[in-house]
Design a protein around this nucleic acid. Structure first.
Ligand SMILES: [Mn+2]
Ligand SMILES: [Mn+2]
Ligand SMILES: [Mn+2]
Ligand SMILES: [Mn+2]
Lengths: 248, 248
DNA sequence: TCACATTTTTAGCGGAGGCTAAAAATAAAG
DNA sequence: CTTTATTTTTAGCCTCCGCTAAAAATGTGA
């Protein structure tokens, strides 16, 4: 809960404009900065730190560019940085990242639910809109959707005050044969995969079971509804699932 | 050329990718560029040209910055420019401007009609979203609104293929006493004015009549519905109206 | 421990889009 | 037709955010 007691990141306007709650009036940052913070947020994952190279790969920029940006972000108090030692978001940085993620995911949900976008094309649109939409707009969208808790790909949506379900899930590749499970989530970054999943009806919420698994990472036979699609290991490791205990 | 390694790789792939209709596949330009083109589009108006100073004032940038940007835009073929002689949009520039204007106005309409935004706060939001929303998204919004022809402030919405109603209108200040007219349009850039207009129910579509006009630009007494608000000249010149001929 | 591989940083550069101050061109007034 | 005022451009500078090439730090395998 450290209320971002960092140093003087906010210029020299007023000492403390309004800090009633935690800290909602964080200076709005640029589009690239929001994308860096998002990338770092989810690369860091549990270890807490992200490497220069990973960030570079994720954002499709040169490693040198990442070093440069990282230095600026550190000087703004958005992250902690020690040369050669990776980077870790500060509390402020985490808040900014989570709000950007919230905007992204609410927008994706709105686009599919209300405007009829197919789930394989919302990501690119959201990747740009997330930087332009105000929190108010996003909250209006969320409200009109009934405050959904996950986006079309099953990713959890942070609440307006920055809480997010951080549960880890097993992949379809790890699922024991015969175990009943529910499809929970898949990455939103591969449109082809998403289209294929939609085709075999393997979307978040759907029940799925592994019927057979050929050795040496061979094909995996599934049961989805009353079809039995056979998928590869490459797909299975991308799909997150959750065991479902049948209640009487 | 170096910087275009990944993103703007569109440059010189094929001479003419697809030019079936007029020219719909125009390289997407930056946010500042879109704002310059919009500003020039409507400053130029009928005369066709806009001055450096006017553009600067409209965009809140220094005149020197405008000169710099103008040179770049001219070199990209978005406008025609002769030193000291003002600037005029090229056909390409006009197309880009109109599409940006379409996005802006459809977004404003969507925000008020669907998401319940008050009409005095949609402009700022649209000013940012217009650069991030794809034409597809905007077309989906337009479709779901039934393809409206004007935005919440009465400004005409260009069609997807770039047609826009360019009619000029008289202002409330010019309206003859006793003439029945319909409120048509008001600038979207002054939230206070918009709130006041909403308060006296003077919104696009509403019938209005000038009952009296005090001399020397004095107060103007209106009839709006069954109220008789008295407004100043400053307001009256901002409100565009259209005479309404009563049909039997 | 030493040599090589990998990762990261530094150095230097470029374009976009801002700025201010000064110079130049154009327009307005006497 | 000058002189002055206004408008516009130039010159020079800045920040942000990219890039490449080279140097430095860190990690690894013999
Ligand atoms: Mn996404
Ligand atoms: Mn983004
Ligand atoms: Mn507007
Ligand atoms: Mn804008």
């Amino acid at each position: 809960m450290a209320a971002s007691a960092k140093k003087a990141s906010s210029s020299k306007k007023t000492a403390a404009p309004s800090k009633t709650t935690a800290n909602l009036a964080i200076d709005r940052v640029s589009e690239p900065v929001e994308d860096y913070l998002k990338a770092i947020y989810d690369l860091a994952g549990k270890s807490g730190t992200a490497s220069t190279n990973d960030v570079a790969a994720r954002l499709n920029v040169a490693a040198a560019s990442v070093t440069g940006m990282i230095r600026r972000l550190a000087s703004q108090g958005l992250l902690e940085y020690e040369r050669y030692r990776g980077v870790r978001l500060s509390e402020t940085g985490r808040v900014v990242a989570l709000r950007t993620i919230r905007r992204h995911r609410v927008i994706e949900t709105y686009l599919t639910e209300v405007l009829g976008y197919p789930w394989d094309r919302v990501h690119d649109e959201a990747e740009r809109l997330e930087h332009a939409a105000s929190d108010e707009l996003v909250d209006r969208m969320a409200t009109s959707l009934g405050n959904p808790t996950s986006d079309p790909h099953g990713a959890p949506i942070p609440t307006a005050d920055g809480q997010m379900d951080e549960r880890r899930h097993q992949t379809l590749a790890e699922l024991d044969i015969g175990t009943r499970a529910r499809m929970v989530r898949v990455s939103d970054k591969n449109p082809g995969l998403l289209r294929y999943l939609a085709e075999i009806d393997l979307t978040p919420g759907t029940e799925v079971q592994v019927l057979a698994r050929a050795p040496f990472d061979g094909p995996i036979t599934l049961q989805v509804g009353d079809t039995e699609p056979v998928v590869g290991q490459g797909l299975a490791v991308q799909v997150l699932v959750e065991e479902v205990q049948d209640e009487t």
